[in-house]
Simulated assay, not measured.
Amino acid sequence: MDCLYRFKKREIASDECVNELKNALHYTVPLESILNAKDESDVYLTHAELGCLYSIAMKSRDEAEEFNIELLQSVTRQCIPEYSIDISLYEMIMSGVASRLGNAGEYGKATAISMKIIQESLGARRMSILHHCLYDVLWNWMETAKKSTSVESGIPVAQELQKCVQLARLCKETFYEEFYSGKL
């Protein structure tokens, strides 16, 4: 995981970081076996391995977008709260999965994941990720509306952005509070 530190310090490029992460992961579990797993019981991944997979998929910026989405979906199978990990890791990984799927045009899947994160977070009485999820749902809806004339304008965008502002303020996330305010 030293490569993530060096990447953040801009000492190495993202492709070099991804290669180092893949090499490190290969010592414990081959990437192919994760992708070929049929369900969550086929492969057990530790927190470190899940974090490694997440970093590989999120930092890969190449023509293999399908591979990255498959990788994120394999991570998704491991992140079902009933089966495994702590809620903070679930929130981090699954919000990244939702974001990446939304960017790839999979708006329905991304929205479903964001709604599941909201449900799980509220069930655990955690609210720090809620503003992210609400914004992701709004963004997915707006992107769908751009591409389709059949989508009704049923979401009051300003009202939803105001919710994001208030939640970010409540969580003392000033960067996001300013970001959402700027969108208003």
Rank of each mutant, 00 (worst) to 15 (best):
A64P: 00
N36T: 08
L170A: 11
H26L: 14
E40L: 11
C3I: 13
E143G: 02
T149C: 05
I85R: 02
G154K: 01
N68L: 00
V151P: 03
I80E: 12
E49D: 12
K183Y: 07
L184M: 13
M94V: 05
P30K: 13
K8D: 09
K116T: 02
W139K: 07
S60I: 02
R100V: 01
A13G: 05
E32I: 05
Y107K: 03
T174D: 07
L89G: 10
Y176W: 11
N68P: 00
S33L: 07
D42C: 10
N68Q: 01
D62W: 00
A48K: 14
K146V: 10
P81I: 02
M1L: 15
V165W: 07
K183P: 00
E152G: 08
A37H: 03
Y90S: 01
P156I: 04
Y44G: 13
V18I: 01
T76F: 11
L101I: 05
H47W: 14
P156N: 13
L71D: 03
T76V: 09
T144A: 09
K116S: 06
S114F: 08
M94G: 03
I85W: 04
G123Y: 12
V137P: 01
R77H: 04
L122R: 15
C3T: 12
A64V: 00
K109D: 03
Q166E: 15
Q159W: 02
G123H: 10
V137E: 00
S121Y: 05
L31P: 03
L184A: 11
T144L: 10
T144F: 06
C164G: 08
I129E: 02
K22V: 11
E32M: 04
M142H: 08
G182D: 04
E106P: 02
W141C: 04
